[in-house]
Design a protein around this nucleic acid. Sequence first.
RNA 1: GGGGGUGUAGCUCAGUUGGUUAGAGCGCCAGCCUGUCACGUUGGAGGCCGCGGGUUCGAGUCCCGUCACCCUCGCCA
Length: 594
Amino acid sequence: MQRSHTCGELRIGDVGKAVAICGWVDRVRDHKGVIFIDLRDRWGRTQVVVGPAAAAATLVAARAARAEWVLRVTGTVGARPAGTNNPKLPTGEIELVCGEIEILNQAETPVFQPGAVELPGEEVRLTNRWLDLRRPAMQENLFLRSRIVKLLRDHCDELGFIDVETPMLGRSTPEGARDYLVPSRLDHGCFFALPQSPQLYKQLLMMAGFDRYVQVAKCFRDEDLRADRQPEFTQLDLEMSFVAADDVMGVIEGLVRRTAWEILGLDVSLPLPRLSYDECMERFGHDAPDLRYGLEIVDLTALAAASDFRVFRGTVEGGGRVRGIQVPGAAARFSRKELDDLTALAVEAGAKGLIWLKCEADGGWSGPVAKNLAGIAAGLQDRLGCEPGDLALIVADSFEVTCKSLHALRKRLGADLGLYEAHAMHFSWVVDFPMFARDAENGGWVAMHHPFTAPRPGDLDLLESDPAACRALAYDLVINGSEAGGGTIRIHDSATQERVFRIMGISPELARERFGFLLDALRSGAPPHGGIALGIDRWVMLFGGLDNIRDVIAFPKTQKAADMMTGAPAAVEPKQLTELGVRVLVPPGKPAPP
RNA sequence: GGGGGUGUAGCUCAGUUGGUUAGAGCGCCAGCCUGUCACGUUGGAGGCCGCGGGUUCGAGUCCCGUCACCCUCGCCA
């Protein structure tokens, strides 16, 4: 070992010890007679002091040392002189009185200093990720991630789960997200797909009798990115046999409770609240509602039907809905421009407009259309629970549009009005999802979760007669308005599976070709089973109080799914393409690497 | 693919109504400094104003296009 201690380890009790530490030069403060060097490593920072009595070579090295040089320093731990302690550092009561400095490596002037106060732009951080990852904040994020992953694994291990790895090179299936494809060298024109999730493999492990499977699984989806979405991401994927939804949810609740306690010291009471999908859409307009604050949606359709206001009447007569939210005490807080911004937000979500009403001191409404609503003024106040000073925001449109726009407004207001504590955590389940949703492209039915989801036993009869009404044995874990996990009980008999395929327009022949192995396995003794996958990146982000998934991923991708550090994706040698039987239609602008 | 934001020194940013030589802080280089810890202090170097067109006597500033990064809608079983 080149070092006896780390840079975060030495304390007042170590005074007098001869030690050796290694690390990066965080800062040098050269006072001519005495030179201070802050040496930094993963564990912390220690001040090295080089006095005028130091050996000539040591003085030369200390004067030469620059930011991010890598040093090995030997010397004696000394107590700092009275009045020079640094209470900001855990090592602030001691310093390493320098004996010798060994320069392990020099460093060019860094593009930015990991210890700097100002955070560089993300482009700079991503191109120089190794520097960015030297920053204590980023190191903390990755430590947190490591702790959470270990905790999840330990918990599953204690519950008897077996960790099984599944292939990365699999078969493309048309369902779901766009696949990342890998061309086959031995079979030109054929491609592997990187897994969007190990879904079928883990079901087959149940059919193989493994009973309880878990994997920290890398997943790939070639879709556009978001602040909380990367094209490659990590799931805690698990599956259990002989279970009902409650059993799977129980395991996850144990994980939630343990993680919240060990990471945040938070005592989460179980069971977690459960909301049905329908209730979520009615009360919050979204299937992953942020329950850290109120601003629930109120239905005003019946009231609107009785009004003279043409917009309301027309919407109701057209089968639409009139819904709104009451924003307590907000009437005075929003200027005309800010209300215009809120309107723009609603319009962006598809609404034709936003009706805003301010509840005045005399109890009446004011606002652009207040006079049109005279007839139902009292009714509105009653339904919305508005008092003087409150603001009411109302959208009249189809149910879907009222959901989308009011959800957007709710989200904006919750954040802007500071309706929740910065560190608040709220965990809940959303259950009773519909089995199917309409395909936006061809109008057919598509699986809301995935095509292997079991319908509620009581809804089996609805499969063909009324697919829209059929509910699934599905459950999503929601943390702070973010989908942090989702799972289902799976279909475990081939007959039901084939029925579900058929509803989604997958013919028996197509089903056999693509999922023959699954249907065969289902017919060869498949136990009832179900499972869930947790988005680990999101978990770490949420438990770390962060708002960006890239900060919990060591080497993330940009919005164009590029790696700014390595330059991936990049062109390849023509020879490689020939070997793979691949021809590029539109060559990229950048030259192939040498 | 659509909407929005950003792009000026190594980094973070300012830059007025289009007007002379584009500034600041940090960092860098050099000098001074024996108790600092975001050390202090004096001096210095450092610019394709993302890129390409255009308007103009004159463009960092106005117009058009384009690229990159970020947020967002679509998309994400």
